[in-house]
């Protein structure tokens, strides 16, 4: 195998490992990506990584996928970009397919239902706490708070598609935050 392809393949494996061993959402992947690419393999500078991370946060999509895609482009162009995105999605993809295969067959079993009734009650805590933590950082001033309440009220009353709320928020930002 030519040196360049070997290099791409090894980086692909690195990402596969990161994807397979980070539970609890894409955010958990970020420190691992940094440690592997910046500290261990030294294929990316600290500055470039931070730039990738901040661009990743301003684009739509999963943070881990955006970050993987950006560092791939920065290190080795489109081939590495696609390899990294694939490596980020694959472990998740296969574990869900296997789980879904069994789950969709057995979900009616009373014991499975009992398990999920308990698990779902704490999923509520996980989600509510995550929203609280994001909210504390996202709402910086009273304008944010007022807009949040207005947009939430609008959403609950009219039931419009969430993407219009995204566009509305961005549009209001154009007027208020420029």
């Amino acid at each position: 195998m030519p040196e360049r392809h070997r290099h791409t393949f090894l980086l692909f494996l690195t990402f596969l490992k990161i994807g397979a061993f980070t539970w609890g959402g894409g955010y958990a992947m970020i420190p691992l990506i940094r440690r592997e690419l910046v500290e261990k393999q030294k294929v990316l500078s600290e500055d470039a990584f931070l730039e990738a991370l901040s661009i990743a946060q301003s684009l739509p999509g999963a943070l881990a996928v955006n970050t993987a895609s950006l560092v791939g482009l920065m290190i080795g162009g489109v081939t590495l970009q696609l390899a990294f995105v694939l490596a980020t999605a694959l472990p998740s993809f296969f574990s869900i397919v296997v789980l879904a295969f069994f789950f969709l067959r057995f979900r009616e079993l009373p014991l499975i239902q009992a398990f999920f009734r308990g698990a779902l009650a704490v999923v509520v805590s996980v989600i509510v706490l995550a929203v609280w933590q994001i909210g504390r950082k996202a709402a910086e001033d009273s304008v944010d708070l007022v807009l949040t309440v207005v947009l939430l009220g609008f959403l609950l009353v009219t039931g419009i598609h969430p993407l219009f709320v995204v566009l509305l928020g961005g549009g209001l930002g154009l007027f208020l935050r420029r």
Binding site: A138, T148, L155, P162, G169, G170, L172, L174, L176, R177
Partner: peptide, 16 residues
């Protein structure tokens, strides 16, 4: 401005 304005929108959606 657009990106800054997304924050309350995101928050409203997450609260929902």
């Amino acid at each position: 401005g657009f990106l800054r304005g997304l924050r309350p929108a995101l928050l409203a959606l997450l609260l929902r």
